[in-house]
Design a protein around this nucleic acid. Structure first.
Lengths: 136, 136
DNA sequence: CTACCTGCAAACTTTTTGCAGCCCA
DNA sequence: TGGGCTGCAAAAAGTTTGCAGGTAG
């Protein structure tokens, strides 16, 4: 969904709770996980509403949509630019605390004849917990 | 799909053509695009066969599965490590000709107490064609 | 020959959408 | 009050899978 400038978005109870759930977790949950979590506060909320609000929040830049494996997305309530590390062994996703390399954007902009606005950097490997299990 | 070591994969006409199509293009096509392209050489091939072979080729490391927007994958016949630029406006995906920064992996390995084995770097912005349209 | 592979079609998963009524600003 | 928003359910889009016959090695 592209951001639609002609619409004056409202704050509803549903959107508020969805955003709270996303801001409160450090995991990077799927839409369905958010749905289940929100249902504890608003039992009769529908999955369609969750998807609609996730798309609205994304188009407003409040949250980020991440895409790992095929067929489904994950959402990140931390919209500031940062990187991720995914463990190949247990699937855990961690935030990486490395300064964001904005110089890269400029370099690619110059080299490729395009206008780079942002980048996404994902690291993969084995996390500390999983290494410990293997070497133990 | 995980690589299944117990199966002795065969080379069939269908798999051969699918691989040729992927190696021959510089775009990063969807499964459906591959299907349409392969159909010109094997008119009665089925979409299921295309998906099955894409998964086999991926598990053998011959091709790479990329994941952008929700709900569908793209495939890259170039399995060597490299970066991508995606145009927000037209969706085109280009290969970025920047040397791969292996130093990043070591830095994150040291900082986070994890073992980084590889990373994926995706740039986003506006491509030359789309900028031209806007400013014309 | 014997696994593995194919085409077909149905099933499955995730996400979107049409509708009638509701509610935030 | 009116333009968005909701729940519901059906539909869409992408991908997987069961089956019976076909084929590579």
């Amino acid at each position: 969904m592209k951001p639609d400038q002609s619409i004056r978005y409202r704050m509803t109870k549903q959107k508020r709770v969805i955003l709270d759930v996303l801001k409160a977790t450090k995991t990077h949950p799927t839409a369905d996980w958010v749905y289940e979590k929100v249902k504890k506060k608003i039992p009769n909320i529908s999955l369609g509403t969750v998807y609609r609000n996730l798309n609205i929040l994304k188009s407003q830049g409040e949250i980020i949509e991440l895409c790992y494996g095929k067929g489904f997305s994950r959402y990140d309530g931390n919209a500031s630019e940062h990187y991720h590390f995914t463990c190949d062994s247990c699937g855990k996703v961690l935030d990486v605390e490395t300064p964001v390399a904005t110089g890269l954007d400029e370099e690619v902009t110059r080299m490729m004849g395009v206008k780079v606005e942002r980048h996404r950097l994902e690291f993969y490997g084995t996390c500390g917990d999983c290494s410990a299990v293997h070497s133990a």
